[in-house]
Design a binder for these strands. Structure first.
Length: 491
RNA sequence: CGGGGUAUAGCGCAGUUGGUAGCGCGCCACGUUCGGGACGUGGAGGUCGGAAGUUCGAAUCUUCUUGCCCCGACCA
């Protein structure tokens, strides 16, 4: 903890600070395999809560889960030209299926066991899924198909960071097939809304919804919708995407159906996904120098109770008193941990649960026992108060809701204050150094976008849905601009 | 794949002109403690990334090699 405090949050050491927090809060660690991550039980518990919530939301919107293979024949990937272009550079390839004893000791790849066709470890599953959907779809009666899969994927990234960019990551990917363009487009938008609702309501992370520019969109998509969040160091993070794929994959995999008029046509598709990157987003949205700050909606432990005692006799009394509170909290569906382990001192426990982001801490000691009181601390503001045990359960229930709301509002305030409108390129260059989102006019060309990226490291995060869309002139070229777009440096 | 670092105990580090291995944290045992990361005493743990060379002697010098980190290109 001392070391954490020594690192400045918004300075150059932010990435060190982040890494240290992830490791110390027991969320994840680097594995022995290059670029891969071990998600530790506490980190995974948070991910599980995210998963469960998202999965419920997918079910509510009519989706079902399925599972498709990890390995994809190399030839599948090349069927959609832009898609292979986008992913070819970061694919892990399986070339052999057997090892043999080496004459130099150990084992070696058996050259006799070379695969006729190499297999790709999925970087995403559009190709294998569309190859499968081809067999599932003959008639309009087979549509729509609304499948999701929870899976791992692998992208051989040059540089990796825990949760934000790892060679292997966990995600969900939805893949849907529709009879009409309108229905598919509506699906892509609907799922983006599911993501933004999840981010804001459960992660307490405000996001900006919008459309990606031509050069930033998904390889193989017609349109990519995105939610963009702002981290505390002023960099943007793409937190979820939903793609309208048009008929690109249907054509590449020859997926046609007979409509009501007995006419053959290609199906319309979407795909959408969020990954364990959301864990990174969660960490970087709310944490402070004492460690993680978790929104109650996603905290594996919402309330921790720590006893302070002298001697076993007093502990037994506290145990008894606390037991009633624990069961009453549980009855309200609040996840609570009573930590009466005697091998750690109270001060250690306080610091540790703060590091782990537990939203509410209750402390019961000898003094409280006498006075029928209990100490309540909220993680988001670190405020402590001692209050009577009467009505404590209702109070904590309300407090959890307040914390959820408070950290969202705090993040939203920070985000809103960091959006600036800028009209000249000079000003833009100056402002981008300060971090945050910059709302500026752009002539709509990939050349100008590339120039800005090269000179300032800023990219177009999205063309936002709910922001001012009046025309103007490009800040770089002076050419006409249809509307302002959102720029930022990003992860 | 370019440019720069680094490699010594589980983790973080020190180790001078070459002289035979140290510190902090953590870990184990016992005792005293317990209202914000306790303290005392004792203890376990290292062929100094690997290979070769120079030398009476190498963590230290030379050459080769490998891993990792940071900055670029790539990216959910």
């Amino acid at each position: 903890m001392a070391e954490l405090k020594n690192l400045t949050k918004r300075g150059e050491n932010y990435s060190q600070w982040y890494n240290e927090l992830v490791v110390k809060a027991d969320l994840a660690e680097q594995s022995a395999v290059r670029g891969c991550m071990v998600i530790k039980p506490y980190g995974y518990a948070i991910w599980e809560k995210m998963q469960r919530q998202l999965d419920d939301m997918f079910k509510e919107t009519g989706h079902v889960n399925a599972y498709f293979p990890l390995l994809i024949p190399k030839s599948f990937l090349s069927k959609e030209a832009e898609h292979v272009e986008g992913f070819a550079k970061e694919c892990a390839v399986v070339t052999h299926y057997r090892l043999k004893n080496s004459e130099f000791g150990g084992v070696t790849v058996d050259p006799a066991a070379r695969l006729e066709e190499e297999l790709i470890i999925r970087p995403t599953s559009e190709t294998i899924i569309w190859n499968t959907y081809k067999n599932w779809i003959q008639s309009y009666r087979d549509l729509p198909i609304l499948c999701n899969q929870w899976a791992n994927v692998m992208r051989w990234e040059m540089r990796t960071r825990l949760f934000l960019r790892t060679a292997e990551f966990l995600w969900q990917e939805g893949h849907t097939a529709h009879a009409t363009k309108e229905e598919a487009e509506a699906e892509a938008v609907k799922m983006l809304n599911v993501y933004s609702t999840f981010a804001e309501k459960y992660m307490a992370m405000p996001v900006i919804k919008g459309v990606k520019s031509e050069s930033e969109k998904f390889a193989g998509a017609v349109n990519t919708y995105t939610i963009e969040a702002l981290m505390q160091d002023g960099k943007a993070l793409q937190s979820g995407t939903s793609h309208f794929l048009g008929q690109n994959f249907a054509k590449a995999f020859d997926v046609q159906f007979l409509d009501k008029e007995n006419k053959l046509s290609y199906v319309w598709a979407t795909s959408w996904g969020v990954s364990t990157r959301l864990m990174g987003a969660l960490i970087m949205s709310h944490s402070d120098d004492n460690g993680l700050v978790l929104p109650p909606a996603l905290a594996p432990i919402q309330v921790v109770i720590v006893p302070i005692y002298r001697g076993e006799e007093q502990l037994a009394q506290i145990d008894e008193k606390v037991a009633g509170i624990v069961s009453a909290l549980k009855a309200k569906g609040i996840s609570v941990k009573y930590d009466n382990a005697d091998n750690k001192r109270p001060g250690f426990k306080f610091a540790d649960y703060e590091l782990k982001g537990v939203p509410v801490r209750l402390v019961m000691g000898g003094r409280d026992l006498e006075n029928n009181t209990i100490e309540v601390m909220r993680r988001d503001t670190l405020e402590k108060e001692t209050r009577t045990c009467d009505g404590i359960v209702e109070y904590v229930e309300q407090l959890l809701a307040d914390i959820q709301n408070n950290i969202f509002e705090k993040a939203r305030k920070f985000r809103d204050e960091s959006i600036r409108e800028v009209d000249t390129y000079e000003e833009f260059k100056k402002e981008i150094e300060k971090g945050g989102f910059i709302y500026a006019h752009w002539d709509g060309t990939a050349e100008t976008e590339e120039l800005i990226k090269e000179e300032t490291k800023a990219t177009i995060r999205c063309i936002p849905e709910d922001m001012d869309a009046t025309p103007g002139v490009c800040m770089v070229t002076g050419k006409p601009s249809a509307r302002r777009v959102l720029f930022a440096r990003s992860y």
